[in-house]
């Protein structure tokens, strides 16, 4: 069963026809040629497919495209340009927050979403006082970024990069 949908990808409306089985991740990569989000585990366990959907970080591998008709999707490629990097992208460069780079687009989208969540006052499991303000120390960053795996083990520099932008 094919259904016509529109996804707004990095600011551009993109109309396409998708088999109902298509995930947002596969629609982006296979049908629209948007390859910034990566397919790692394809089961919501690794975070490499993370994009911002309607402003929030989600795993696009577990999101069916038909259910996201009309959604605003921002990939790591849409956050900044090569000449004008997003602050999180620049911080990853400055701190060498990657090795092979495969998980990096997901890490960066996740970090952008996580920093927004922190600015909105979201607590985490390691927050001692659930009703106090957010202070993003290294433990908080690790907990809030635990949905993004890096098999190279660049975590130390990823935490440092995000820490530079922490509220």
């Amino acid at each position: 069963m094919d259904i016509d949908i529109t996804l707004h990808v990095d600011g551009e409306p993109r109309s396409l026809s998708v088999d109902t089985r298509t995930t947002v991740l596969d629609a982006l990569r296979e049908q629209l040629g948007v390859t910034a989000p990566k397919k790692g585990c394809d089961h919501g366990q690794c975070g490499s497919c993370t994009c911002l959907v309607d402003g929030r970080r989600v795993t696009t591998c577990l999101s069916l495209a038909v259910a996201h008709d009309g959604a605003q999707i921002t990939t790591a490629a849409g956050l900044g340009s090569e000449r004008d990097l997003h602050a999180v992208q620049q911080a990853f460069v400055d701190h060498d927050g990657f090795q092979c780079g495969y998980c990096t687009p997901g890490q960066i989208c996740s970090a952008v979403g996580m920093l927004d969540e922190a600015r909105s006052g979201f607590a985490s499991y390691v927050t001692a006082d659930l009703t106090a303000g957010v202070v993003l120390d290294a433990d908080e960053i690790r907990e809030r970024m635990s949905g993004n795996l890096c098999r190279c083990g660049a975590y130390v520099n990823i935490v440092a990069a995000i820490g530079e932008l922490a509220p």
Partner: peptide
């Protein structure tokens, strides 16, 4: 209901909790 907030925060990941 802080136990409920903390239970939710202990589950899955930030991305999955948004879905």
């Amino acid at each position: 209901y802080p136990a409920l907030a903390r239970a939710l925060l202990s589950g899955a990941s930030g991305q999955l909790r948004n879905l």
